[in-house]
Design a protein around this nucleic acid. Structure first.
Length: 464
RNA sequence: GCCCCUAUCGUCUAGCGGCUAGGACAGGAGAUUCUCAUUCUUCAAACCGGGGUUCGAUUCCCCGUGGGGGCACCA
């Protein structure tokens, strides 16, 4: 067990964002890499915007992604574990009060306009701030120098007193963040670069409390992809919410793998990696300094490569979860053995689990759609109606015992007329599945069975 | 406006003074396959600009420019 203690400190004020997930991930990876402690702390001081629903979403998303926390609220929200609680800021009022009194008593804070302000040390002067369009009091101070683990030395001037308790009596972010990091003995603050400018405030606060500051590591931000526009990813952007991937039944390890590569790399060409290897290889100095744009296509590709190699049981389980949430789910799942067979036929073909519904409809209903474009194309080539009639004649006597037997039968039929397998395949597929994409036609014959194949062929020919 | 961070193919990135600037996703072409997809081969694609430092800069420094973030009694 190392002395590394890191925390992920989200606010339950909105959906769980991909940027938050990445920050959580880097903290978690660092804790696991170093054998340290990963803490979840809920920053719910903004009573107006907090909600229990969003809090639950944080627990669920972290759990889904496989980021377990050593201290913090329990995943079901019922209690908590760890020696430095409570882990919800809304329950830490007494702690903040104590630290406020300490500053007040030491002359490092004062009241003004009903709020409590942190007092900087140095000579004071007044200037007109043309950004805020008002007179402000400034303080001459030495620059705050931060030795950031990712950015190197960063110097920034902090030259204005700032509010630490609002006039409504509630403490502000900068204050509670620092107090809790002290109380929870946080060793490394790993957070988004958007906090880099805040860090000078935080360092002054640590000084005010007479406590050494933790080490800082400011990670790059995730930006919109070029199609989405400019700026950092916001909750409005497509693909920005973890919930979305969960609903689409992405593999969490694929998402984690992709996220780990946004701003970090193992130092060689490896991209697809086991979580265990990512943990082993991850380190703070290897994190990039520049922001990364989100690429949904690369994520989708990562998800597909994971999907292709899933063991049958896991894939079928994933498929089952997906269909449970579909309107026709109960019917699809009715016959377990058959469901499994169909899903395993689809596994090597699909790119994501949420394609499964459309990809396998015709296995579960006679009322499947016919793709008009595919129909036009297939029916325009050769003499498909004759091929269909020939198949209808042959199917009753065909050996359906294996894919190989079916393939042999169709080939024999084709050769007898100087044709190829393909001349039957396309039109049979169209008649039986309504599309041109799918598993091998022989497997479809075998799984659907003689009666249904024959019925579909006849029905299609009759309508054509 | 002020402050901070940052800059290699469209995108994620490797490179840590001397390389035909490498890989991956996306895109193009081809091969394999009963379709589709996978897979394989292959093509196209980048060092933001200007000054330095150096025998030599993608690499180090400075200045621009571009991108990002921050400047609240939000977090």
């Amino acid at each position: 067990m190392s002395n590394v203690r890191v925390r992920f400190a989200p606010s339950p004020t909105g959906f769980f964002h991909i940027g938050s997930a990445r920050t959580a991930l880097f903290n978690w990876l660092y804790a696991r890499h170093t054998g340290g402690t990963f803490i979840l702390r809920v920053e719910d001081t903004d009573q107006a915007r907090n909600s229990e629903q969003f809090l639950k979403l944080i627990y669920d998303s972290l759990t889904w992604l496989g980021m377990d926390w050593d201290e913090g609220p329990s995943p079901d929200g019922s209690g908590e574990r760890g020696a430095y609680g409570p882990y919800r800021q809304s329950q830490r009022g007494a702690v903040y009060e104590k630290y406020k009194q300490q500053l007040l008593a030491g002359g490092r804070a004062y009241e003004k306009d009903g709020a409590v302000w942190f007092k900087l040390l140095g000579d004071r002067y007044t200037v007109f701030d043309d950004h805020r369009k008002k007179e402000v009091e400034k303080v001459k101070t030495a620059p705050v120098v931060i030795e950031d683990l990712i950015r190197g030395r960063v110097a920034r001037q902090e030259d204005e007193d700032f509010v630490i308790f609002r006039s409504d009596g509630n403490p502000v972010f900068h204050f509670v963040n620092v107090v809790d990091d002290i109380e929870m003995k946080i060793s490394h603050v790993i957070r988004g670069e958007d906090h880099l400018s805040n860090t000078s405030k935080h360092v002054r606060l640590y000084e005010g409390f007479g406590v050494p500051a933790p080490l800082f590591a400011h990670i790059p931000l995730i930006l919109k992809s070029p199609e989405m526009g400019q700026g950092k990813m916001s909750k409005r952007d497509k693909g920005a919410l973890i919930e979305e991937y969960q609903q689409r039944h992405f593999l969490p390890e694929a998402l984690v793998n992709y996220l780990s590569l946004l701003g970090w790399n193992p130092g060689d060409d490896r991209e697809k990696m086991l979580i265990a290897d990512i943990i082993k290889l991850f380190d703070l100095p290897a994190v990039n300094q520049s922001n990364a744009k989100f690429d949904g296509k690369k994520l989708a590709n990562m998800n597909m490569t994971y999907l292709l190699e899933q063991p049958a049981d896991r894939f079928v389980g994933l498929a089952r979860n997906y269909f449970k949430a579909q309107p026709n789910g109960a019917a699809v799942l009715a016959d377990e053995a058959w469901f499994r067979e169909v899903m395993l036929l689809a596994q090597p073909k699909i790119k994501s689990v949420d394609e499964l519904g459309a990809y396998t409809v015709y296995f579960f209903t006679e009322d499947f759609p016919i793709d008009a474009k595919v129909k036009d194309k297939v029916m325009a080539k050769g003499d498909p109606k004759s091929r269909l009639a020939e198949l209808i004649a042959a199917v009753p006597g065909m050996d359906f015992s294996s894919d190989a037997a079916i393939e042999a039968a169709i080939k024999t039929l084709a050769e007898g007329r100087g044709l190829g397998f393909g001349d039957y395949q396309a039109v049979a597929r169209l008649a039986i599945t309504g599309t041109n994409a799918g598993p091998s036609i022989t497997a479809i014959f075998r799984v659907l069975g003689r009666e249904r194949i024959l019925a579909r062929l006849q029905r299609f020919l009759g309508a054509a």
